[in-house]
Design a protein around this nucleic acid. Structure first.
Lengths: 234, 234
DNA sequence: CGAGTACTTGAAAGATCTCAAATTAGGTGG
DNA sequence: CCACCTAATTTGAGATCTTTCAAGTACTCG
């Protein structure tokens, strides 16, 4: 997508000196906790979430290997949302100072990172529109499609059958629904022949119809960075 | 918040060469339209929105003078959302190439811009959590608080009484509700003594309670950019 | 003054939640 | 491998929230 020069590549590789393991169910960062680190996920799966005053949880984003998370520390110095490991995971912490170094020394890389953030932002607005305007059934469908896309990005052979890796409670916290209603919507999708379920695995039977109802767009697929200046020689 | 050196200031000022007026009700950018420009709003008010397949509209963000909008073009080269003027407005277009120039020549400014984007992103996630988890009444309250904060940022004397500048239809499109229900929620807030309404103006009567129920956070108030390196001498 | 848009209200339909209970699945110690 | 324990899923029934439809009122602009 973007070709890096050797020094650029080296700068990126150098970011990942330390690694940190997080056991499933552990909290990596608490909401409002003072912190100057962001992370990339190396393996496993995280969620970013917020808690509301009434104790309910809103999952903001599912984080898969390769994702960058927590860039907000460059503006706040504290985390606007919590990070929780849904599976045993390994993260690479990056201090915001290192981000500044990249911007100063490798502007092309900085632009590429900014573009990545924009992709995530667009995904966030897609989700926002979904929460505001889609039916419960469509929001659940959107999660299924999203997870499938993300799994496929890690492993190209992922087909239309896959393990969700989420409880119905978690799907509910992502879609703004109760676990009970998520269950009913899954059943409804199943009854309508859009999906099938068996031993914890889901199969997307009618992807086209699912996508249409969920207003699904794969933002990453439409990224265009060709306008960036070419890599410096070296 | 951040002190710019003269060359940095000059670089920013230079961005705003042209101006463009947009009449109330006019569309500045259509969704998915090819475009390589972003904008700052000089005066007036815009909304960023998406249309869903069923024709419903989700307002993603209200844009006030000083706001930057459309940074997504650095990643996509087309607009992921539409921009519409809710009032007669003046915008300053900025080409993404100019953004790249800033990153290459004024990295401190680039970091400050990135931080601003992060503030907006945090605001977006606050809104996402609101759509997912707040009651209709609280979501309407959140819009009132948001607009008041934004107006006050333009004009410090704005008190607890102000003109919304939005129809109930627009509030509905921002909160994921119907205009009819927005009306009922406003009435309810009024009956509960949280707000008052008179000749198109709203008064916040119990800000503390409104904030609590709407899970309101003023993200901009907690920004910290002091960790950035000092300005280069020049 | 007249037309159009926005606002307001009522009644009924539809969607989602809550509460409660039954069933299934997975993990652990013996 | 079994027995048990806990978490997750499933289903039903009724309550609550939000939308839809319809009609009437208020406001603004030419």
């Amino acid at each position: 997508m973007i070709t890096l020069s050797p020094p650029e590549r080296a700068a990126l590789d150098q970011l990942g000196e330390r690694e940190r393991s997080v056991r499933k169910g552990m909290t990596l960062v608490r909401e409002n906790e003072r912190s100057t680190e962001l992370f990339t996920l190396k393996s496993g799966m995280l969620i970013a979430y917020m808690l509301l005053d009434d104790g309910s949880r809103q999952i903001l984003r599912f984080i898969f290997p390769g994702d960058l998370v927590g860039m907000a520390v460059i503006a706040f110095g504290k985390a606007p949302h919590a990070l929780l490991a849904l599976a045993d995971s390994v993260v690479v912490p990056i201090d915001r100072q290192q981000v500044a170094d990249i911007v100063f020394r490798h502007p092309r890389v900085a632009l590429a990172l900014a573009a990545l953030e924009q992709v995530e932002r667009a995904t966030l607005t897609d989700r926002l529109a979904g929460l505001g305007r889609l039916s419960a059934r469509a929001r659940v469908a959107a999660v299924l499609l999203d997870i499938r896309d993300r799994l496929r990005r890690q492993d190209e052979v992922v087909g239309n059958t896959f393990t969700l890796g989420l409880t119905q409670e978690e799907i509910g916290d992502a879609t703004g629904l109760t676990a009970v209603h998520v269950n009913r919507m899954l059943r409804q999708l199943e009854d309508q022949g859009l999906i099938a379920r068996a031993n914890g695995r889901v199969t997307l039977l009618d992807e086209a119809r699912l996508k249409r109802s969920a207003n699904h767009v794969d933002r990453l697929a439409t990224v265009d960075l060709n306008w960036l200046p070419g890599p410096a020689i070296g």
